[in-house]
Write a protein that binds this DNA or RNA. Structure first.
Length: 574
RNA sequence: CGGGGUGUAGCGCAGUUUGGUAGCGCAUCUGGUUUGGGACCAGAGGGUCGCGGGUUCAAAUCCUGCCACCCCGACCA
């Protein structure tokens, strides 16, 4: 491809909206442009990278016997109503109506549609297992789209669905998928970690997330340095323990705490560590107000609370000021379990019941109550674990100390069980002619997000450094002075030679100065650069690997061999 | 959705406090000189100042309603 013809609008300046390196460089390198918040156009270079990633995914899916097909992005509401997710998905779903007022949505995921596709025609155990996938545009009306391709409202995803006879088969398909994903992300050059995930809105049991590590990653994970335990912060079991205290229960006492609201202020005011306080968080649930009590030195894990309540995420939020005032009779910051309004459902983390003589809000502005004890002073629903893990907590598997890290979720695998086959009545006949539920799995790879995640791991202050496996072009022949015939001639000769060997090459034939060509090549991250300049007449060119800095002068005949070496060093054949 | 902020040329911004006919840098176009790390000179084009309403002789600037976008928080591939 001649760069003089390539539509590659690079930017010298950083658009003010971009924060993350991946977002900045995707824009600056002319790979994407924003249409509206969370919706992007992929320009030629960006789209080439996308297709590279898609093809890696395709090859690995095909390797485990998954078959590609393509579904519509538009889906009728009926199937979603059958599974109950029309409401569960909530405001995250883009909904629309046709001219007959019939309801549709733009698919955020395709469990229902795949199940519906197979259920009438897959009738015998002889047809199982079945593994199908598609690479397609997905729509989710995110609360807050951000970070360029990292969190979009329209994004490209590979979603695979597995259909098995029983749990054992499902687990086997799950393992196949796991292996395929490890291959995919390894081939993309990513430093990633597999962690236990929460199944969330998808439903089902076992799930794992593939996290591309990044200091600015959106997800937090907890992992153990001594064993293989790793989980998202929301999923991680919190082994924090409070032993039953045998100290004597003291007389409870109201204390004036003028304008002292936060745990931090309270520890200072009382000069008592935060472990001796109990936090009361007021939530608005579905048609009810909740008071959630947890130890004062810990944070609540909302996902665990959602699970306990068995409601979707969008039906739970922190109560507003007005509600807090109504149920506690006090300003925000003085909520407690004692004498709280009867309408409130009180939920208590088990650890609180082991504590003695703790301090809670007084449900009266500017007052707290000390020497409070569970059972004697208040009651509630006891829940085993509502806490968010924290660095240093005990590993639930081996007891060693947990560490925290950040990453971006680029893939996940779910064991769905029979949730969708139950809802949509998808059955097969077993050997005995008896109808059985199909066991399903659902497996996603965020293709566009993977593209961003790769840049997060592969960039420097000059731009992107693509791994060869996903680079939009493998090499660029930079003709230093396009007006000099000998340079153009040698450049074109190299371009043709490399292209004929299956190497994807750009030739920078633009009437620009050398500096412009170099900076652009670095910005768009082409792995190999061959500069043809003054020594063209001696058949000498300059060879540089992006990100490695060391320039060497070689004979033009040696170029092909050098290029092959670079491919080999990245584990690729050409 | 809550909190904070921003909308002025393709991009990055100044001008708004104190109303007076819209500016800078980069990019673009033309001509020339230059040519191994984002060149220089000369000239040119490009803006409903986010949108609507109001105040005023006069509004980018003041008032008001709306919209969009970004950042921080809670969710996901």
């Amino acid at each position: 491809m001649k760069m003089s013809k390539l539509y590659m609008p690079t930017l010298r300046e950083v658009p003010s909206e971009a924060e993350l390196p991946s977002h900045k460089y995707l824009l600056r390198a002319g790979m994407i442009r924003k249409l509206v918040s969370g919706v992007y156009s992929y320009l030629p270079l960006g789209y080439r990278v996308m297709k590279k990633i898609e093809n890696i995914v395709r090859e690995e899916m095909d390797n485990i016997g998954s078959q590609e097909l393509l579904m519509s992005a538009i889906q009728p509401s009926e199937l979603w109503k059958e599974s109950g997710r029309w409401d569960d998905f909530g405001p995250e779903m883009f909904k629309l109506k046709d001219r007959h007022e019939r309801e549709f949505c733009l698919g955020p995921t395709h469990e229902e549609i795949f199940t519906d596709l197979i259920k009438d025609e897959l009738k015998s155990y002889k047809q199982l297992p079945l593994n199908l996938y598609q690479i397609q545009t997905k729509y989710r009306d995110e609360k807050r789209p951000r970070f360029g391709l990292m969190r979009c409202r329209e994004f490209i995803m590979k979603d695979a669905y597995t259909f098995d006879m029983d749990e054992e088969g499902m687990t086997e398909s799950y393992r196949d998928m796991w292996r395929a994903y490890e291959n995919i992300f390894t081939r993309c050059g990513l430093d990633f970690r597999v962690v236990e995930g929460d199944s969330g809105a998808m439903g089902g049991s076992d799930s794992h997330e593939f996290m591309a590590m990044s200091v600015v990653g959106e997800s937090e994970i907890a992992y153990c340095g001594d064993c293989d335990y790793a989980a998202t912060d929301e999923k991680a079991i919190c082994e924090y323990k409070i032993e039953v205290s045998d100290s004597k229960e003291l007389e409870k006492e109201k204390v004036s705490t003028p304008n002292i609201k936060t745990i931090e202020e309270l520890t200072e005011f009382f000069n008592i560590p935060s472990e001796n306080f109990v936090k009361t968080l007021i939530y608005q649930g579905k048609d009810e107000v909740l008071a959630v009590l947890i130890p004062g030195n810990r944070e609540l894990n909302e996902v665990k609370l959602l699970k306990h309540l068995a409601i979707p995420e969008h039906e739970l939020e922190l109560a507003d000021e007005e509600t807090i005032k109504r149920v506690t009779g006090a300003n925000v910051g003085f909520a407690g379990p004692i004498a709280i309004s009867d309408e409130v459902r009180v939920i208590v983390d088990k650890r609180v019941t082991n504590m003695k003589n703790f301090i809670v809000g007084g449900n009266e502005t500017d007052y707290h109550i000390k020497n409070v004890n569970y059972n004697r002073d208040f009651h509630g629903e006891i829940v085993e674990d509502l806490l968010l893990v924290r660095e240093g907590d005990k590993c639930p598997k081996c007891g060693s100390s947990l560490k925290m890290d950040r990453g971006n979720e680029v893939g996940n695998i779910f064991q769905l069980g029979t949730k969708y086959s139950d809802a949509l009545n998808a059955t097969y006949l077993d050997k005995n002619g008896k109808a059985q539920k199909i066991y399903m799995g659902s497996h996603g790879v965020g293709i566009s997000r993977t593209m961003a995640a790769i840049i997060e791991q592969y960039h420097d202050d000059k731009g992107i450094i693509w791994p060869l496996s996903v680079a939009p072009y493998h090499a660029v022949v930079t003709v230093i002075n396009a007006k000099k015939e000998d340079q153009m001639e040698l450049g074109e000769k190299l371009y043709k030679e490399l292209s004929s060997k299956g190497i994807e090459v750009l030739i920078d034939d633009r009437k620009e100065r050398a500096g412009v060509k170099f900076t652009d090549a670095e910005l768009i991250g082409i792995p190999i650069r061959i500069a043809v300049g003054r020594k063209a007449n001696e058949n000498i060119v300059e060879f540089v690997i992006r990100g490695e800095g060391e320039k060497i002068e070689i004979k033009s005949e040696e170029v092909l061999g050098k290029v092959k070496e670079v491919f080999k060093s990245q584990g690729l054949d050409i």
